[in-house]
């Protein structure tokens, strides 16, 4: 379904990305990401699975430019090492909207910063994207008057309106109840099918990864990519879809495998 728009120029290239955190006074250094290589093409929807603490957020934050790192990250062939409007982050935290701005102003503000001054145009854009996430009736609300799921939808609308090269999503639906989560997944899938967007989506929910991703990565506890598979299941994906069960089992096994190299074996 993406044949037409797909170009063979990668939008994102990560080469030998290594990330270390020094604990306390720099004496202890822990290596979270170990020489990760990753190439991503426009229109891909990459889901990243991995056990808690394996470095998924860290990986995304490096790409977003929020963490210093070793190695090389390029967007459209240009090296990046600080935040930019070509990579917009949707955080897991519900409180990522600016509480002092109404819903529509939250969407408009970054566009104004990008130089769109015309009030009517700003209004048109924010209306259009809030419509897409079904929050148009709430455009005058303040973030504190919204539920967690609604806030995440505003954050997504805001990211879409900025038309970045890549949208980076760090478990945006993780703190939601199952029903809301399914609804938002479906909504995001619809948006993805209509809009020309490229997404990296972190989750530790296998179902979510299979439903959304066109490509699924699994990160190991040691902080490298141990699986990288295309997801060819026809969208929209349901647990009844052909091949769903097989894929689910495969990822479930990969996630629960005891680490191959480290000494900490499963106690059982």
């Amino acid at each position: 379904m993406t044949e037409k728009t797909e170009r063979r120029e990668p939008v994102l290239e990560v080469k030998n990305l290594t990330k270390t955190f020094s604990n306390g006074n720099g004496a202890e250094v822990s290596e979270i990401l170990q020489g990760v290589n990753f190439t991503m093409y426009p229109r891909e929807f990459v889901c990243i699975l991995g056990p808690s603490g394996c470095g998924k957020t860290t990986f995304l934050r490096c790409i977003g430019g929020f963490e210093p790192f070793e190695g090389e990250i390029s967007v459209d062939g240009k090296r990046v090492n600080s935040p930019g409007v070509d990579r917009i982050m949707v955080f897991q935290d519900f409180n990522q909207l600016l509480p002092w701005k109404s819903v529509e102003k939250n969407v408009q503000y970054p566009l104004r910063i990008q130089g769109i001054r015309d009030k009517q145009e700003l209004q048109k854009i924010s209306d259009q994207y809030l419509e897409k996430v079904e929050l148009y009736p709430y455009r005058k609300f303040y973030p504190h008057q919204l539920s967690g799921g609604m806030k995440q939808r505003v954050a997504i609308a805001k990211a879409l309106a900025m038309k970045p090269r890549i949208i980076l999503m760090d478990e945006p639906f993780a703190s939601l109840d199952a029903i809301t989560r399914n609804k938002l997944q479906a909504e995001l899938m619809q948006i993805y099918q209509k809009e020309d967007i490229t997404v990296i989506f972190i989750t530790h929910n296998i179902q979510e990864a299979i439903c959304l991703g066109t490509r699924i990565l699994v990160m190991s506890k040691q902080g490298n990519i141990k699986m990288d598979v295309p997801n060819r299941i026809q969208k929209p994906v349901t647990p009844a879809s052909e091949g769903y069960g097989k894929m689910w089992d495969m990822f479930n096994k990969a996630l629960n495998e005891s680490p191959e190299t480290s000494g900490q074996e499963n106690v059982f």
Binding site: G65, F66, V85, D93, Q96, I113, Q114, M162
Partner: peptide, 14 residues
């Protein structure tokens, strides 16, 4: 100021 607002701001290109 919570870090997330600052990072949001940086992300928007302020």
């Amino acid at each position: 100021v919570p870090r997330i607002y600052i990072e949001s701001g940086e992300n928007m290109g302020l």
